[in-house]
């Protein structure tokens, strides 16, 4: 039996690319340039069916946020939920991390950059890696 490899990591979602320089990978419509993070059948903007992988820029700003006190079970609260717009115009939903979860610590328009952090380990010793944005 293969023993668990403690260093094994998986991204929380498949559009997060982990490694030395983590980034988000979008499916970009080759016809109109619309970007999506989920598995696609066709483009919601133009209806075409061809996509390429696009590397989303890691910097952006906070377009909207909420300090969530009543969280889903198992999620530490309060935390900062946010909508981030990256400098290449892609909108991402994420938490703001490495930042106090208070309205005073977060501001609309605040500059942020992508970061990653572990959120837990499964029974095989595989660690799940989430992404968030931190003040920059």
């Amino acid at each position: 039996m293969v023993s668990p490899t403690p260093s094994a990591q998986v991204p929380l979602v498949d559009y997060l690319r982990i490694g030395a320089r983590p980034y988000l990978r979008a499916h970009e419509c080759t016809s109109c340039g619309a970007r999506f993070f989920d598995r696609r059948v066709a483009c919601a903007s133009c209806g075409k069916q061809e996509f390429r992988n696009a590397r989303v820029k890691n910097s952006g700003h906070v377009k909207a946020f909420s300090i969530v006190h009543r969280a889903a079970p198992g999620i530490p609260a309060p935390y900062v939920s946010a909508v981030v717009e990256t400098i290449d115009g892609t909108t991402v939903r994420s938490n703001i991390v490495n930042c106090d979860a208070t309205p005073e610590a977060v501001s609309l328009g605040m500059s942020v950059k992508l970061t990653t952090y572990p959120i837990g380990t499964d029974d095989d010793g595989t660690e799940a890696i989430a992404f968030g944005y931190e003040p920059s």
Partner: peptide, 23 residues
């Protein structure tokens, strides 16, 4: 018990609260 990607985002566990709120 095992982190396996699933769903349209290939998520290995629930994302509500990790990648923003769904509440």
């Amino acid at each position: 018990k095992v982190f396996e990607p699933g769903g349209r985002y290939g998520a290995v566990t629930g994302i509500d609260g990790y990648l923003g709120t769904e509440g």
